[in-house]
Design a protein around this nucleic acid. Structure first.
Lengths: 149, 149, 149, 149
DNA sequence: TTTT
DNA sequence: TTTT
């Protein structure tokens, strides 16, 4: 039946993606994304931030693990999914997530480098220095196609 | 800073909108919207339905009360908002809603009529017969502008 | 480089898709799509129709040939592409098209049937009667994936 | 009837906006916007740039004149409009434009400053230094509303 | 928990 | 004509 379920976000990652590997060699990455809007109320400027739970699967999760880090500005396109789970107290809860289908890193070239080699660099998939790639557009089944985006 | 928070849905209303009037002459309408997607798994066709909580404010809520009914197919554009509340047991819960900024009724002219004059017709703002309007596009502050959308 | 180029349309086909088969077994379908908006100017209601040139490639073109006909209401998602060509008088012209990446048929089940068996039915891929399929969501590389949309 | 006509772009301005003032105190701004996509063909990376003609009216044109400059990265949301005109040789031509309804500047704070005070600064509406505003979200009738975006 |  |  007749459905469209599409979300378009541009915002900053609140944390590095959390990457898990499920059975069957399936990768999942998830992270919070902040979108802010500024509006004016009674002459004052007010910033309101909305937090979104982003989930990426398989190939998209793997490129997310390589290119997305806390603070990066990213365009995310995906769909809404509300699922149910039990919290630690056994209470049934609902959570709404954005299951990403594409993302595009925004910002300047230097923004696409991983954080500089201090502290937590060890656990991050290193992006080679000298790589001149300056932008990243990804879709869910990237790699297979030799053509378009 | 730098934010985009946009949701685009096409689906059917699961119920008539529930309309409330808040202090200060503010109208709010809300209803569940179903978007379905069909995919193929192991040769079988599977339909998966996602339910969204739609909220409309002020003028948009008022036109929703006039034109939107259970079963109608509608295009909704808005933004995500997650808010917290306490349920009847005093448990703090989160809910994610789509705050609509525009909607467009889809389908044929007859679909824009209110349900036929049995049962609950009384409490529904009647759409005149003979009205040839066959489509409805609305934005948040409809009425004020004398121009386009 | 950082790019997003996305078009979202809901409108009616102005004609049946024109389907061509290029070298290398590549199918292309194209058709005009009308999107209308109603606005109010000086108290009068004005309807303004915009026409879009839609182009579909390969698998998407093939499903378009099966399910899309003049008058159908369809959701189309794609990207803008402006290309140059020479008209019959040798004048260099530009045309902007929407290269579709997905489409979804909207409307009721009966709307998905091909036009009844008079006139041009012969050249249309018949959709069996009795088929209960009531909705069609397609993406560019449909068929390969056994999962989601 | 039943229309949706929406374009979503993220790209860089190819030129400073060209601003005109029409009769009746109406401002129009227009500029080319580049969206690039990178894809892989036969192992080679290929970048393809698409150029869009963006048009902004009234209040939106005025804020564009203040904040948008050649090279800036911007999110633009609007609708497609194809219009006809006669070129200098009297040939009737068509052009498709994106009539913007909203835009959001993307990138870091320093990107929101006007070009430094050399060369062409004279003809640009100066953005005061010391202004700490770091992001700009605008809609068509900005200024009137005291609330949301 | 982001960004400015 | 942008950006990397």
């Amino acid at each position: 039946m007749s459905g469209v379920n599409k979300v378009i976000l541009v915002g900053h990652l609140g944390k590095d993606p959390e990457v898990r590997h499920l059975d069957g060699n399936v990768t999942v990455a998830s992270f919070p994304l902040a979108t802010s809007e500024i509006y004016h109320k009674d002459g004052r400027k007010v910033e309101q931030t909305e937090w979104h739970n982003i989930v990426m699967w398989r190939g998209l999760a793997e490129v997310a693990a390589k290119y997305l880090f806390k603070g990066k500005l990213v365009y995310v396109e995906g769909k809404l999914r509300t699922r149910t789970y039990e919290d630690r107290e056994g209470i049934r809860r609902y959570t709404t997530e954005v299951v990403a289908e594409t993302f595009t890193l925004l910002g300047r070239k230097s923004d696409f480098d991983p954080p500089s080699a201090t502290g937590n660099a060890a656990e991050q998939p290193a992006k080679k220095t000298g790589d001149t790639q300056s932008n990243v557009d990804f879709k869910e089944n990237d790699g297979e196609e030799d053509t378009h985006f």
